[in-house]
Design a binder for these strands. Structure first.
Lengths: 152, 152
DNA sequence: GCGTTATGGATAATGATTATCCTGAAAGAA
DNA sequence: TTCTTTCAGGATAATCATTATCCATAACGC
């Protein structure tokens, strides 16, 4: 229910590479590999996760390269960043627009539940605060099913 | 509309001191001062903000003391932490239960809009993901009214 | 192929937060 | 009030994800 198949990874990869090229970014082998990892990932990998996966094909890749590529992708709105102050940030390259997440506070599992859209609520907030709302973040924290089992 | 008066700061201070005492924490002058700053704050101060305010009455207070006190308050659920990976975390001592925020991405202003409660949505997410939901975070990002003016 | 210039790699720097360690103060008991 | 125990404060070092820096090199348009 949680990490069901989303859109086709190959299609998403094509989309990302096309957008980067179109905006004048070079498509290096390392970059392509990072895009592929993001497109194929069902979870929400951290930079270190991505780097580890990358080392299988490109054993000399630097962590800095991953950070730089992620920054590009953020600038181009091709990846959604989930910030944490006490943990490494996590990234969603499949669905780069804001959407709710369920986050396990024990094991760090993150999944995308289906929920009604928040546009109405965002409009309400804009009306009441005078803000020009451009993005949002909705996280639910708790224990994932696996971690509940371990409680006995 | 955004930073309207909430509950009575003095009453909130009484509440916090009572809870800390009840749980066996000592009430030192520094701690009381931090509680007062949190209770009276209408914004969402960072640790550094709190420390700066504290120095007026206790010029030798260490930053570490503020961090330690905040940790206590988090453990006792008397303060709500808003985490940011690229900025200092911000704290709400007035309303320590999760509630939506509007956050200015330019100046960092944070305010508490009135919105319908999210309990139903949380229940829906719990049903669909199997998570045992214990907390949530709903942030809306955008430009506050002041920062919109500066755009011309 | 060539030349321009963005990118990759290695590593140092940054900065919020946490850990450590010791001294001193808070609170209860006598 | 004084004593005792233990928690809290202050100073500072350590941590760790993320950024910045710098140079050699690879990508891509011509």
């Amino acid at each position: 229910m949680c990490d069901e198949a989303k859109r086709d990874p190959a299609e998403r990869l094509r989309q990302m590479t096309a957008r980067l090229k179109e905006r004048g970014h070079r498509l290096t082998p390392q970059r392509l590999a990072i895009l592929r990892i993001l497109a194929e990932s069902r979870g929400h990998p951290s930079v270190e996760d991505i780097h580890k996966a990358l080392l299988k094909d490109f054993p000399t890749t630097s962590l800095a390269t991953v950070y730089k590529t992620i920054t590009r992708l953020k600038d181009e709105n091709e990846v959604l960043e989930l910030e944490f102050s006490d943990l490494a940030n996590r990234y969603d390259g499949n669905t780069p627009t804001p959407h709710p997440h369920a986050i396990c506070t024990r094991c760090g599992a993150i999944c995308d539940p289906d929920t009604p859209p928040l546009e109405e609520l965002a409009k309400l907030v804009a009306d009441r605060t005078g803000f020009r709302i451009t993005s949002h973040r909705l996280d639910f924290y708790g224990l994932c099913p696996k971690c509940q089992e371990q409680d006995g």
